[in-house]
Amino acid sequence: MKKLIDFKVFLKGIWKENPILFIMLGLCPVLAVSSSVKDALGMGIAVIFVLTGSNFVISSIKKIVPSYVRIPVYIVVIATFVTITDYTLAAFSPQIHRNLGVYLPLIVVNCIILGRAEGFASKNNILNSILDGLGMGIGFSLIIFVIASIREIIGNGTFLSRSILGVSYNPFLIMIMPPGAFLVIGLLIALKQRIEKGGKEKC
């Protein structure tokens, strides 16, 4: 990983080391806002922005930050980006801002952001850190989008708030309740394991 730009860094976040399906960090917002596709997309975009931004900044300042104060510095950087996102969404997309509610400010304590800052950006060059942030963010967004699509379609009969299964559809309500999120995430993780290992491993 000594290359200036390594595109594998970007790709691994999307599938192999996907933040939701592999690293399994930052699941709280995934569980909370994935009951509707629109909110999930808003959350995804917010995470991409914060993750890329904080990775960029933290990688740039890694030389001047002494290791014993790095955690508070990371938190300040992340909190700054989150607050910027918060204000911007409130100003330009009040609907999504309202639906994301408390989970938007909570991105500050989302482990995936701090995890990438500590685990990647603080050890790698700026370009790769940006790529890592983008890759992880997009990986996060894709999966939260898939989860939200499944949950909204089955649990509410709608996609992006438009009815697609018709009025006679009796929604499978548990899908938009918290247990539904656990079920779908669990099934997707199992599916990923199955695809990668081909079911060869036994208990």
Binding site: A32, S35, S36, D39, G101, E152, G155
Partner: peptide
Amino acid sequence: KEHNETPGL
């Protein structure tokens, strides 16, 4: 006007 109820429920 304002609420923080669970999305979708």
